[in-house]
């Protein structure tokens, strides 16, 4: 209402309030600026990964004779090569591919929920929000498995300080320099926390949709705002996927 009258009286009352120069509501703008600050946090983390990786030696030998060592940065293909129920099979990047697909898919269902919100279609919003929540939970489950796998380690382990060591923690890491595991746990953990809070926000929005809050307020903008956050989480994963798993 405020903005409708504002557009008609804009020239007469430009500084009188109620004008939206960015054609977006306060809540949406603040979500954008929050996401911008979060972009800086995540880029700082990922750039730290890049810097520490560049300050370690890279493996230069033949790829087939690769072994884990404390001397050089591990090759991601060799670290992330397991998927559930297929123990001992070398399947590089397959599991993380599934995780990426789940997250992109849940981003799609989120944007479908936003689209349904524009049409004021409560049933469709409910349906797509529920799929989005399920996608988020599935992703978190995959990540829990991935962490457990990395912490537990391989059957052979590696020799660290003359003793065999299995898996990885913040101090020791059978796959390579300890910094590799530190950065992995920190960055994917920080991203996972974002996914977790995204799922919680989605559940709140889903609940509000079901009890008809947005039908009463007359718009589904809350779905859009949380949608922005959810897409951002997906966006961060695109970068984590490239820098941690591919390069």
């Amino acid at each position: 209402m405020a903005s409708h009258s504002a557009t008609t009286t804009q020239s007469a009352n430009l500084w009188g309030g109620g004008v939206e120069p960015m054609k977006a509501s306060y809540g949406k703008l603040m979500m954008w600026f929050f996401l911008m600050s979060d972009t800086f946090t995540f880029s700082a983390l990922l750039i730290t990964y890049g810097m520490i990786r560049f300050s370690n030696h890279a493996y230069l030998g033949d790829i087939d004779s690769y072994v884990f060592s404390q001397e050089y940065w591990p090759i991601p293909d060799k670290v992330f090569n397991a998927i559930p129920f297929l123990h001992g099979v070398h399947l590089p990047l397959v599991f993380v591919g599934i995780m990426t697909f789940i997250l992109i898919m849940s981003s799609v269902t989120m944007v479908l929920a936003v689209e349904a919100g524009h049409r004021m279609d409560r049933n469709d919003v409910q349906k797509w929000m529920l799929w989005t929540i399920l996608g988020g939970i599935a992703f978190l489950g995959c990540q829990a498995w991935e962490w457990t796998h990395l912490i537990t380690g391989t059957e052979t382990g590696s020799l660290i300080d003359g003793k065999p060591f299995f898996g990885a923690n913040l101090v020791r890491n059978e796959y390579g320099p300890p910094a590799f595991a530190d950065l992995f746990f920190f960055i994917t953990g920080f991203h996972g926390t974002h996914v977790l809070s995204g799922v919680l926000l989605n559940i709140i929005i889903f609940y509000n949709t079901v009890i008809g809050v947005y039908d009463r307020t007359g718009h589904y903008e809350m779905v859009e705002k949380v949608g922005l956050y959810w897409h951002f989480v997906d966006l961060v994963w695109v970068f984590v996927f490239t820098f941690f798993y591919l390069i």
């Binding site: 209402m1 405020a2 903005s3 409708h4 939206e20 054609k23 509501s25 306060y26 809540g27 697909f101 992109i104 898919m105 799609v108 944007v111 479908l112 689209e115 349904a116 524009h118 049409r119 004021m120 279609d121 469709d124 007359g218 718009h219 903008e221």
Partner: peptide, 29 residues
């Protein structure tokens, strides 16, 4: 809080318009 894209009561009859969304999905995939 009122919003600029608040629509009137007739929008409930609109059909879903999801072509662009799925196109983006295929690009990402």
């Amino acid at each position: 809080m009122e919003h600029s894209h608040q629509e009137n009561g007739t929008v409930a009859m609109q059909k879903p318009n999801t072509g662009a969304i799925w196109r983006t999905f295929w690009f990402l995939l």
